[in-house]
Design a protein around this nucleic acid. Structure first.
Length: 413
RNA sequence: GCGGCCAUCGUAUAAUGGUUAGUAUUGGGGACUGUGGAUCCCUAGAUUUGGGUUCAAUUCCCAGUGGCCGCC
Protein backbone atom coordinates (compact mmCIF):
# COMPACT_ATOMS: atom_id res chain seq x y z
CA UNK A 1 0.00 0.00 0.00
CA UNK A 2 2.95 2.26 0.47
CA UNK A 3 3.15 2.64 -3.29
CA UNK A 4 -0.24 4.32 -3.18
CA UNK A 5 0.97 7.35 -1.33
CA UNK A 6 0.27 10.71 -2.95
CA UNK A 7 -2.88 9.23 -4.38
CA UNK A 8 -5.93 11.38 -3.98
CA UNK A 9 -9.44 10.12 -3.78
CA UNK A 10 -10.72 12.08 -6.72
CA UNK A 11 -8.32 10.28 -9.02
CA UNK A 12 -8.86 6.85 -7.58
CA UNK A 13 -12.31 6.13 -8.84
CA UNK A 14 -14.02 7.91 -11.70
CA UNK A 15 -17.40 6.87 -10.38
CA UNK A 16 -16.78 8.73 -7.17
CA UNK A 17 -18.91 11.81 -6.91
CA UNK A 18 -16.73 13.71 -4.46
CA UNK A 19 -16.55 17.38 -5.11
CA UNK A 20 -13.40 18.65 -6.72
CA UNK A 21 -13.01 21.01 -3.83
CA UNK A 22 -12.09 18.10 -1.60
CA UNK A 23 -9.30 15.56 -1.71
CA UNK A 24 -7.26 13.45 0.60
CA UNK A 25 -3.58 13.01 0.01
CA UNK A 26 -1.51 10.44 1.84
CA UNK A 27 1.95 11.94 2.08
CA UNK A 28 3.65 9.21 4.04
CA UNK A 29 2.73 5.61 4.73
CA UNK A 30 4.42 3.81 7.60
CA UNK A 31 6.06 0.56 6.66
CA UNK A 32 5.62 -1.36 9.91
CA UNK A 33 2.00 -0.45 10.61
CA UNK A 34 -0.95 1.31 8.99
CA UNK A 35 -0.22 4.76 10.38
CA UNK A 36 0.01 7.42 7.72
CA UNK A 37 0.46 11.13 7.29
CA UNK A 38 -2.14 12.84 5.19
CA UNK A 39 -3.75 16.09 4.17
CA UNK A 40 -7.48 16.57 3.85
CA UNK A 41 -7.96 19.45 1.43
CA UNK A 42 -11.13 21.51 1.89
CA UNK A 43 -12.36 24.87 0.60
CA UNK A 44 -11.46 26.35 3.97
CA UNK A 45 -7.96 24.95 4.04
CA UNK A 46 -6.08 21.77 4.84
CA UNK A 47 -6.25 19.36 7.74
CA UNK A 48 -2.97 17.64 8.43
CA UNK A 49 -3.51 14.13 9.71
CA UNK A 50 -3.46 12.25 12.01
CA UNK A 51 -5.39 15.03 13.70
CA UNK A 52 -7.35 15.61 16.83
CA UNK A 53 -10.53 17.59 16.14
CA UNK A 54 -11.74 19.58 19.17
CA UNK A 55 -15.47 19.53 19.73
CA UNK A 56 -17.49 22.75 19.42
CA UNK A 57 -20.96 21.33 19.96
CA UNK A 58 -22.86 24.58 19.98
CA UNK A 59 -20.60 26.43 17.54
CA UNK A 60 -18.07 27.26 20.22
CA UNK A 61 -15.21 25.52 21.93
CA UNK A 62 -16.50 26.20 25.42
CA UNK A 63 -14.59 29.02 27.13
CA UNK A 64 -12.26 29.76 24.17
CA UNK A 65 -12.22 32.23 21.32
CA UNK A 66 -11.63 30.94 17.78
CA UNK A 67 -8.43 32.94 17.81
CA UNK A 68 -7.16 30.99 20.78
CA UNK A 69 -7.91 27.71 19.02
CA UNK A 70 -6.18 28.97 15.93
CA UNK A 71 -3.17 30.09 17.96
CA UNK A 72 -2.85 26.57 19.34
CA UNK A 73 -2.52 25.40 15.76
CA UNK A 74 -5.66 23.37 15.25
CA UNK A 75 -6.69 22.89 11.62
CA UNK A 76 -10.29 21.95 12.28
CA UNK A 77 -13.10 21.65 14.80
CA UNK A 78 -16.39 19.73 14.95
CA UNK A 79 -19.83 21.10 15.67
CA UNK A 80 -23.20 19.46 16.09
CA UNK A 81 -26.34 19.32 13.97
CA UNK A 82 -28.80 18.43 16.71
CA UNK A 83 -27.76 21.21 19.06
CA UNK A 84 -27.58 23.90 16.39
CA UNK A 85 -30.88 22.78 14.88
CA UNK A 86 -32.59 23.37 18.22
CA UNK A 87 -30.68 26.53 19.00
CA UNK A 88 -30.33 28.95 17.30
CA UNK A 89 -31.81 27.04 14.33
CA UNK A 90 -30.21 26.43 10.91
CA UNK A 91 -31.93 29.43 9.33
CA UNK A 92 -30.17 31.79 11.68
CA UNK A 93 -26.79 30.28 10.93
CA UNK A 94 -27.41 30.22 7.20
CA UNK A 95 -28.39 33.89 7.28
CA UNK A 96 -25.31 34.57 9.38
CA UNK A 97 -23.19 33.42 6.46
CA UNK A 98 -23.03 29.72 7.46
CA UNK A 99 -21.27 28.30 10.42
CA UNK A 100 -17.69 29.44 9.81
CA UNK A 101 -18.65 33.06 9.33
CA UNK A 102 -21.28 32.86 12.07
CA UNK A 103 -18.72 31.80 14.68
CA UNK A 104 -15.67 33.46 13.13
CA UNK A 105 -13.73 30.25 12.61
CA UNK A 106 -12.41 30.36 9.09
CA UNK A 107 -10.75 26.96 8.84
CA UNK A 108 -12.23 23.55 8.00
CA UNK A 109 -15.16 22.30 10.02
CA UNK A 110 -17.03 19.07 10.59
CA UNK A 111 -20.62 18.70 11.75
CA UNK A 112 -21.90 15.56 13.34
CA UNK A 113 -25.25 14.38 11.97
CA UNK A 114 -27.25 14.20 15.17
CA UNK A 115 -27.17 10.41 15.25
CA UNK A 116 -25.31 10.32 18.52
CA UNK A 117 -27.80 12.66 20.17
CA UNK A 118 -30.58 10.28 19.15
CA UNK A 119 -28.65 7.62 21.01
CA UNK A 120 -28.18 9.88 24.02
CA UNK A 121 -31.87 10.75 24.17
CA UNK A 122 -33.08 7.25 23.37
CA UNK A 123 -35.82 6.08 25.69
CA UNK A 124 -36.27 9.42 27.37
CA UNK A 125 -37.09 12.17 24.92
CA UNK A 126 -36.89 10.19 21.72
CA UNK A 127 -38.53 7.40 19.76
CA UNK A 128 -36.95 5.72 16.75
CA UNK A 129 -38.72 4.18 13.76
CA UNK A 130 -37.24 2.83 10.55
CA UNK A 131 -38.18 5.96 8.66
CA UNK A 132 -37.49 8.74 11.15
CA UNK A 133 -36.69 9.80 14.66
CA UNK A 134 -39.16 11.74 16.79
CA UNK A 135 -37.64 13.59 19.68
CA UNK A 136 -38.43 16.30 22.13
CA UNK A 137 -36.13 19.21 22.65
CA UNK A 138 -34.13 19.03 25.86
CA UNK A 139 -34.39 22.83 25.91
CA UNK A 140 -38.13 23.48 25.68
CA UNK A 141 -39.72 20.01 25.26
CA UNK A 142 -40.99 20.90 21.78
CA UNK A 143 -41.44 17.92 19.45
CA UNK A 144 -39.30 17.47 16.32
CA UNK A 145 -38.81 14.90 13.61
CA UNK A 146 -35.39 14.09 12.23
CA UNK A 147 -34.78 12.06 9.09
CA UNK A 148 -31.62 11.38 7.09
CA UNK A 149 -32.84 13.91 4.52
CA UNK A 150 -33.51 16.49 7.21
CA UNK A 151 -30.08 15.95 8.74
CA UNK A 152 -28.48 16.53 5.33
CA UNK A 153 -30.58 19.64 4.76
CA UNK A 154 -29.71 21.06 8.15
CA UNK A 155 -26.03 20.31 7.67
CA UNK A 156 -26.28 21.98 4.29
CA UNK A 157 -27.66 25.11 5.91
CA UNK A 158 -25.00 25.02 8.60
CA UNK A 159 -22.41 24.71 5.87
CA UNK A 160 -19.54 22.80 7.44
CA UNK A 161 -17.01 21.40 4.97
CA UNK A 162 -17.15 17.82 6.17
CA UNK A 163 -20.44 16.35 7.24
CA UNK A 164 -21.64 12.97 8.48
CA UNK A 165 -24.40 10.69 7.28
CA UNK A 166 -27.30 10.20 9.66
CA UNK A 167 -26.77 6.97 11.55
CA UNK A 168 -27.94 5.22 14.67
CA UNK A 169 -25.35 5.09 17.39
CA UNK A 170 -25.84 1.93 19.42
CA UNK A 171 -25.00 0.70 22.88
CA UNK A 172 -21.87 -1.40 22.46
CA UNK A 173 -23.45 -4.04 24.70
CA UNK A 174 -26.56 -4.51 22.52
CA UNK A 175 -27.24 -8.14 21.60
CA UNK A 176 -26.90 -9.54 18.09
CA UNK A 177 -30.52 -9.25 16.92
CA UNK A 178 -30.76 -5.68 18.19
CA UNK A 179 -27.47 -4.72 16.58
CA UNK A 180 -28.40 -6.42 13.32
CA UNK A 181 -31.73 -4.60 13.15
CA UNK A 182 -30.07 -1.32 14.03
CA UNK A 183 -27.41 -1.83 11.38
CA UNK A 184 -30.02 -2.48 8.71
CA UNK A 185 -31.75 0.73 9.70
CA UNK A 186 -28.47 2.69 9.76
CA UNK A 187 -27.53 1.46 6.30
CA UNK A 188 -30.93 2.51 5.01
CA UNK A 189 -30.52 5.90 6.62
CA UNK A 190 -27.05 6.27 5.16
CA UNK A 191 -28.27 5.41 1.66
CA UNK A 192 -30.93 8.09 2.03
CA UNK A 193 -28.30 10.48 3.39
CA UNK A 194 -26.13 9.99 0.33
CA UNK A 195 -29.04 10.42 -2.09
CA UNK A 196 -30.13 13.63 -0.42
CA UNK A 197 -26.58 14.91 -0.10
CA UNK A 198 -25.85 14.37 -3.79
CA UNK A 199 -29.07 16.17 -4.65
CA UNK A 200 -28.43 19.29 -2.62
CA UNK A 201 -24.64 19.60 -2.73
CA UNK A 202 -24.84 21.25 -6.11
CA UNK A 203 -21.85 23.54 -5.65
CA UNK A 204 -19.57 20.84 -4.19
CA UNK A 205 -19.05 22.96 -1.13
CA UNK A 206 -19.33 19.99 1.21
CA UNK A 207 -18.06 16.43 1.45
CA UNK A 208 -19.77 13.51 3.15
CA UNK A 209 -18.57 10.80 5.53
CA UNK A 210 -20.42 7.49 5.76
CA UNK A 211 -20.34 5.71 9.10
CA UNK A 212 -19.53 2.11 9.94
CA UNK A 213 -21.65 0.61 12.70
CA UNK A 214 -22.15 -2.99 13.78
CA UNK A 215 -21.92 -2.91 17.56
CA UNK A 216 -19.62 -5.45 19.15
CA UNK A 217 -19.88 -8.05 16.40
CA UNK A 218 -16.95 -8.32 14.03
CA UNK A 219 -19.03 -9.90 11.27
CA UNK A 220 -21.49 -6.99 11.44
CA UNK A 221 -18.63 -4.50 11.47
CA UNK A 222 -17.30 -6.21 8.35
CA UNK A 223 -20.71 -6.17 6.70
CA UNK A 224 -21.07 -2.49 7.55
CA UNK A 225 -17.59 -1.59 6.30
CA UNK A 226 -18.28 -3.27 2.98
CA UNK A 227 -21.66 -1.59 2.69
CA UNK A 228 -20.38 1.88 3.55
CA UNK A 229 -17.60 1.45 1.00
CA UNK A 230 -20.24 1.03 -1.71
CA UNK A 231 -21.74 4.40 -0.80
CA UNK A 232 -18.67 6.11 -2.30
CA UNK A 233 -18.58 8.84 0.27
CA UNK A 234 -15.56 11.12 0.50
CA UNK A 235 -14.59 9.86 3.93
CA UNK A 236 -15.62 7.14 6.32
CA UNK A 237 -16.34 7.35 10.02
CA UNK A 238 -16.44 4.53 12.51
CA UNK A 239 -19.09 4.93 15.16
CA UNK A 240 -20.29 3.47 18.44
CA UNK A 241 -16.77 2.73 19.58
CA UNK A 242 -16.25 3.43 23.24
CA UNK A 243 -13.08 3.65 25.22
CA UNK A 244 -13.66 0.44 27.11
CA UNK A 245 -13.25 -2.44 26.97
CA UNK A 246 -10.08 -1.49 25.14
CA UNK A 247 -9.13 -4.79 23.56
CA UNK A 248 -12.57 -5.39 22.11
CA UNK A 249 -12.79 -1.83 20.79
CA UNK A 250 -9.42 -2.17 19.07
CA UNK A 251 -10.49 -5.48 17.58
CA UNK A 252 -13.69 -3.95 16.18
CA UNK A 253 -11.90 -0.97 14.65
CA UNK A 254 -9.21 -3.21 13.22
CA UNK A 255 -11.86 -5.38 11.65
CA UNK A 256 -13.74 -2.45 10.17
CA UNK A 257 -10.58 -0.90 8.73
CA UNK A 258 -9.59 -4.17 7.12
CA UNK A 259 -12.62 -3.88 4.86
CA UNK A 260 -12.39 -0.17 4.06
CA UNK A 261 -10.48 1.43 1.16
CA UNK A 262 -7.12 2.60 2.41
CA UNK A 263 -7.02 5.82 0.42
CA UNK A 264 -10.03 7.42 2.09
CA UNK A 265 -9.82 9.56 5.22
CA UNK A 266 -11.06 7.63 8.26
CA UNK A 267 -12.59 9.31 11.26
CA UNK A 268 -13.10 7.63 14.61
CA UNK A 269 -16.14 9.22 16.16
CA UNK A 270 -16.00 10.26 19.78
CA UNK A 271 -12.54 8.89 20.55
CA UNK A 272 -10.32 9.37 22.33
CA UNK A 273 -8.11 9.26 25.27
CA UNK A 274 -4.32 9.42 25.03
CA UNK A 275 -3.88 5.66 24.86
CA UNK A 276 -6.77 5.36 22.40
CA UNK A 277 -4.90 7.61 20.00
CA UNK A 278 -1.79 5.47 20.27
CA UNK A 279 -3.92 2.39 19.59
CA UNK A 280 -5.83 3.73 16.60
CA UNK A 281 -3.27 5.84 14.71
CA UNK A 282 -1.20 2.76 13.81
CA UNK A 283 -4.37 1.07 12.57
CA UNK A 284 -4.85 3.86 10.03
CA UNK A 285 -7.29 6.26 11.69
CA UNK A 286 -6.72 9.79 10.38
CA UNK A 287 -8.94 11.97 12.52
CA UNK A 288 -10.43 11.84 16.00
CA UNK A 289 -12.96 13.99 17.73
CA UNK A 290 -13.47 13.76 21.44
CA UNK A 291 -14.86 15.89 24.23
CA UNK A 292 -12.41 14.56 26.81
CA UNK A 293 -9.80 17.35 26.82
CA UNK A 294 -12.40 20.13 26.89
CA UNK A 295 -14.94 18.50 29.19
CA UNK A 296 -12.37 17.18 31.62
CA UNK A 297 -10.69 20.59 31.70
CA UNK A 298 -13.87 22.14 33.05
CA UNK A 299 -13.98 19.79 36.02
CA UNK A 300 -10.31 20.06 36.83
CA UNK A 301 -8.65 17.12 35.09
CA UNK A 302 -5.37 18.39 33.70
CA UNK A 303 -3.44 16.34 31.15
CA UNK A 304 0.25 15.77 31.87
CA UNK A 305 3.06 14.49 29.68
CA UNK A 306 5.16 11.42 30.46
CA UNK A 307 8.16 13.52 31.48
CA UNK A 308 5.91 15.14 34.11
CA UNK A 309 4.52 11.90 35.46
CA UNK A 310 1.66 11.22 33.06
CA UNK A 311 1.14 7.53 32.34
CA UNK A 312 -1.47 4.98 31.41
CA UNK A 313 -2.27 4.28 35.02
CA UNK A 314 -3.13 7.90 35.90
CA UNK A 315 -4.64 8.40 32.42
CA UNK A 316 -2.05 11.13 31.80
CA UNK A 317 -3.76 13.55 34.10
CA UNK A 318 -3.85 15.15 37.52
CA UNK A 319 -6.83 16.66 39.29
CA UNK A 320 -6.07 20.28 39.99
CA UNK A 321 -8.83 20.50 42.59
CA UNK A 322 -6.96 18.15 44.91
CA UNK A 323 -5.98 19.84 48.16
CA UNK A 324 -2.30 19.01 47.64
CA UNK A 325 -2.11 21.61 44.87
CA UNK A 326 -3.42 24.44 47.02
CA UNK A 327 0.04 25.93 47.52
CA UNK A 328 1.89 24.30 44.62
CA UNK A 329 3.91 27.02 42.89
CA UNK A 330 4.79 24.95 39.80
CA UNK A 331 2.98 24.99 36.43
CA UNK A 332 0.20 22.48 35.65
CA UNK A 333 2.73 20.55 33.59
CA UNK A 334 6.36 21.72 33.84
CA UNK A 335 7.07 20.12 30.46
CA UNK A 336 4.28 22.03 28.74
CA UNK A 337 4.86 25.24 26.78
CA UNK A 338 1.27 26.41 26.49
CA UNK A 339 0.09 29.86 27.57
CA UNK A 340 -1.36 28.52 30.80
CA UNK A 341 1.77 26.66 31.83
CA UNK A 342 4.11 29.51 30.99
CA UNK A 343 2.15 32.06 33.02
CA UNK A 344 0.34 30.43 35.95
CA UNK A 345 0.89 28.09 38.89
CA UNK A 346 -1.10 25.12 40.08
CA UNK A 347 -1.89 27.10 43.21
CA UNK A 348 -3.50 29.89 41.21
CA UNK A 349 -5.49 27.60 38.96
CA UNK A 350 -6.59 25.56 41.98
CA UNK A 351 -7.86 28.80 43.47
CA UNK A 352 -9.68 29.77 40.26
CA UNK A 353 -11.50 26.44 40.22
CA UNK A 354 -12.42 26.52 43.89
CA UNK A 355 -13.86 29.99 43.46
CA UNK A 356 -15.51 29.05 40.15
CA UNK A 357 -13.88 31.91 38.33
CA UNK A 358 -14.55 31.95 34.58
CA UNK A 359 -10.86 32.20 33.80
CA UNK A 360 -10.39 28.72 35.21
CA UNK A 361 -12.32 27.13 32.33
CA UNK A 362 -10.33 29.07 29.77
CA UNK A 363 -6.91 28.32 31.20
CA UNK A 364 -7.63 24.63 31.80
CA UNK A 365 -9.08 24.21 28.31
CA UNK A 366 -6.14 25.97 26.69
CA UNK A 367 -3.77 23.61 28.46
CA UNK A 368 -5.64 20.39 27.69
CA UNK A 369 -6.15 21.22 24.03
CA UNK A 370 -2.53 22.35 23.70
CA UNK A 371 -1.54 19.01 25.20
CA UNK A 372 -3.49 17.11 22.54
CA UNK A 373 -2.24 19.33 19.73
CA UNK A 374 1.37 18.76 20.72
CA UNK A 375 0.70 15.03 21.08
CA UNK A 376 -0.62 14.90 17.52
CA UNK A 377 2.31 17.01 16.27
CA UNK A 378 4.72 14.56 17.83
CA UNK A 379 2.82 11.63 16.35
CA UNK A 380 2.96 13.22 12.90
CA UNK A 381 6.66 13.88 13.34
CA UNK A 382 7.28 10.30 14.42
CA UNK A 383 5.46 8.90 11.39
CA UNK A 384 7.55 11.16 9.20
CA UNK A 385 10.73 9.90 10.87
CA UNK A 386 9.64 6.27 11.08
CA UNK A 387 9.89 6.52 14.85
CA UNK A 388 6.30 6.01 15.87
CA UNK A 389 7.14 2.88 17.84
CA UNK A 390 9.67 4.79 19.91
CA UNK A 391 7.17 7.52 20.65
CA UNK A 392 4.53 4.96 21.56
CA UNK A 393 7.07 3.28 23.80
CA UNK A 394 7.70 6.55 25.59
CA UNK A 395 4.01 7.21 26.18
CA UNK A 396 2.34 3.85 26.47
CA UNK A 397 4.53 0.76 26.55
CA UNK A 398 7.03 2.16 28.99
CA UNK A 399 4.36 3.07 31.47
CA UNK A 400 2.64 -0.28 30.98
CA UNK A 401 5.94 -1.92 31.88
CA UNK A 402 6.18 0.29 34.92
CA UNK A 403 2.71 -0.77 36.00
CA UNK A 404 3.77 -4.41 35.74
CA UNK A 405 6.89 -3.64 37.74
CA UNK A 406 4.82 -1.93 40.40
CA UNK A 407 2.47 -4.89 40.56
CA UNK A 408 5.42 -7.24 41.06
CA UNK A 409 6.95 -4.90 43.57
CA UNK A 410 3.71 -4.65 45.53
CA UNK A 411 3.16 -8.40 45.45
CA UNK A 412 6.61 -8.93 46.98
CA UNK A 413 5.71 -6.59 49.82
C1' G B 1 -31.95 46.17 84.50
C1' C B 2 -36.65 43.31 83.37
C1' G B 3 -39.40 40.03 80.12
C1' G B 4 -39.75 36.72 75.94
C1' C B 5 -37.55 33.52 72.29
C1' C B 6 -33.42 30.62 70.70
C1' A B 7 -28.81 27.31 70.97
C1' U B 8 -27.90 20.21 66.61
C1' C B 9 -21.71 18.59 61.73
C1' G B 10 -17.67 24.44 59.00
C1' U B 11 -22.65 26.63 57.22
C1' A B 12 -28.08 26.13 56.72
C1' U B 13 -31.64 23.11 58.64
C1' A B 14 -34.74 18.17 60.32
C1' A B 15 -36.08 14.65 64.21
C1' U B 16 -36.50 12.15 68.86
C1' G B 17 -37.69 10.37 76.67
C1' G B 18 -34.72 4.59 74.15
C1' U B 19 -30.94 0.90 69.54
C1' U B 20 -27.22 3.86 63.92
C1' A B 21 -29.44 12.00 65.35
C1' G B 22 -31.66 12.80 58.99
C1' U B 23 -31.10 16.25 54.73
C1' A B 24 -28.62 20.04 51.86
C1' U B 25 -24.22 22.55 51.17
C1' U B 26 -19.15 22.92 52.25
C1' G B 27 -14.58 19.75 53.14
C1' G B 28 -11.64 15.10 51.41
C1' G B 29 -11.48 11.53 47.25
C1' G B 30 -13.34 9.04 42.66
C1' A B 31 -16.07 8.43 37.75
C1' C B 32 -16.93 10.94 32.89
C1' U B 33 -14.75 9.23 25.17
C1' G B 34 -19.84 11.86 17.96
C1' U B 35 -20.33 17.75 25.31
C1' G B 36 -22.37 17.22 30.52
C1' G B 37 -19.45 24.58 33.47
C1' A B 38 -24.08 19.14 34.41
C1' U B 39 -24.57 14.70 36.99
C1' C B 40 -23.35 10.41 39.75
C1' C B 41 -20.56 7.49 43.54
C1' C B 42 -17.59 7.06 48.04
C1' U B 43 -15.97 9.52 52.50
C1' A B 44 -15.48 12.96 56.76
C1' G B 45 -18.13 16.02 60.12
C1' A B 46 -22.93 17.97 65.25
C1' U B 47 -26.87 17.75 69.95
C1' U B 48 -23.54 25.09 74.16
C1' U B 49 -21.72 24.28 79.61
C1' G B 50 -22.97 22.55 84.67
C1' G B 51 -26.54 20.37 87.69
C1' G B 52 -31.45 17.82 88.36
C1' U B 53 -35.75 14.31 87.16
C1' U B 54 -35.65 9.30 84.92
C1' C B 55 -34.03 2.49 84.20
C1' A B 56 -32.70 5.87 80.09
C1' A B 57 -31.97 13.15 78.53
C1' U B 58 -29.89 15.82 72.49
C1' U B 59 -35.25 15.93 74.01
C1' C B 60 -38.24 17.49 80.34
C1' C B 61 -36.68 21.00 84.65
C1' C B 62 -33.09 24.67 86.93
C1' A B 63 -28.79 27.59 86.49
C1' G B 64 -24.55 29.46 83.60
C1' U B 65 -22.78 31.23 78.93
C1' G B 66 -23.87 33.20 74.18
C1' G B 67 -27.33 35.28 70.48
C1' C B 68 -31.92 37.78 68.88
C1' C B 69 -36.37 40.73 70.02
C1' G B 70 -39.28 43.91 73.15
C1' C B 71 -39.74 47.25 77.37
C1' C B 72 -37.48 50.80 80.86
Amino acid sequence: MSNQTKQSVSNSNKKDREPNNFSFTITKQSTDNQARLGIIHTPHGDIHTPAFIPVATKATIKSLTPQQINDMGFDSILSNTYHLYLQPGPDIIEKGGKIQKFMAWHKPMFTDSGGFQVFSLSGKLCTISDTHVTFRSHIDQSTHVLTPEKSMQIQRQLGADLIFAFDQCLDINADYPTTQASLKRTHNWETRSVLEFNKINIDNSQALYGIVQGGRFTELREESAKFVTTLNTFGIGIGSIFGDPKEESVKLVTHALKHLPEHKPKHLLGIGSVDDIFYYVPLGIDTFDCVLPTRLARIGHIFTRPESGGNVENKFRIKITNAKYKEDQTPLDPACTCYTCTHFTKSYIHHLEKSKELLFYTLATIHNLSFFKRLMDEIQQSIQNDSFKILRQKWIDQTEEKIEENKEHNSKI
